[in-house]
Amino acid sequence: MWVSILGCSGGIGPGNRTTSILIDDDILLDAGSGVGDLQLQQMCKVKHIFISHSHLDHIAFLPFLVDSIFSQIEEPIQVYGLPETIDALKKHVFNWVIWPDFSELPNKDRPVMAFNVIQPNQSIKIKKRTIQAVAVDHVVPGLGYIVTNEAGRTFAFSGDTATNDSLWEALNNLPSLDTLMIESGFPNSHEALGKLAKHYTPNTLAKDLCKLKHKPHLLISHLKPGMEIMISEQLHKVLNGYQLTCIKSGDSINID
């Protein structure tokens, strides 16, 4: 199972792309600005897009992706999300004012995109992989996702979240966990802001990791631009018992 980090930053700037993760070549977790670095041929292979929540940095390039390959789509691209997320996409993005509604184009009977509601703890089987949705705690309703292949190798993605129990309970129910991509958006000095915006800091993440029975490779995402070094140093100090990587756009991981 190949995991390609198209985007993982908490902001924009040279080399920074917002959240989007490509699983193998056909599944996207979120559709932030990292999608824009895909070649057209790569975009055409994407068949399933799992959205964690409705914030712009996680959905911004979904409209451009579908528009760019519109004429080459033979079967609808399947977009999954919580009811609140799907509702936000319909009302505020694909509403014929901000962007055309591709769930009705070229016509309602044969659209190029289809919306699918997914609930926490629900699993979707795609070829030889299973994608499980997990509730997390963010300022809007959000999900994390657990991807498991036929060999039992497992990659988990937290989405945006702060302290919670649901994510850790779901991860502890797994027989094993190889890799966990989890956010730490602010340094410890911004803990009050982290609580308000519902993002982890190194200290709050370290406390929650005590709930986890597995020892996965940690991929840290969503670091705010300009604060990356500070956050990284704090993470390595409080999580020195873990294999830990502060990832960047363009990284790839083979979960084998």
Rank of each mutant, 00 (worst) to 15 (best):
D109Y: 12
Q243A: 14
L239E: 11
V134T: 05
A206I: 10
L244R: 09
T154R: 09
T163V: 13
E75W: 03
L29Y: 04
D109C: 08
E183I: 11
E150I: 06
R153Y: 09
L174N: 09
G159V: 02
G144D: 01
K128E: 15
T201G: 06
L40I: 12
H53E: 15
E104M: 14
I146M: 01
T163E: 15
E104P: 01
G13W: 07
M227N: 11
H138Y: 15
P83I: 00
H138P: 01
S249M: 08
L174S: 11
D137E: 13
S54I: 06
L193I: 10
L239Q: 09
K127W: 07
G142K: 00
K213R: 15
H217P: 03
K211Y: 05
S4T: 14
Q39P: 03
S9R: 02
W99Y: 12
S158W: 05
I12P: 06
F155W: 08
D25G: 00
H236V: 10
S68W: 01
K215C: 12
F102C: 00
W96T: 11
I247T: 14
N172R: 12
K47M: 02
A60D: 06
S184H: 04
A192Q: 14
I255F: 07
P63M: 02
D251I: 00
N121P: 06
K127T: 04
F94G: 04
W2R: 15
P187K: 10
F61K: 09
N149R: 05
M1T: 05
P202G: 04
S20T: 07
P76M: 06
G159N: 07
T18A: 03
I124G: 00
P106K: 08
P76G: 07
R110E: 13
G15R: 09
T148G: 00
I146G: 04
P216V: 12
A135S: 13
H138C: 08
V112N: 02
T179L: 15
E74H: 10
M181I: 01
G11C: 03
I12V: 14
E150Y: 12
L205K: 06
I86R: 09
G81N: 04
P175I: 10
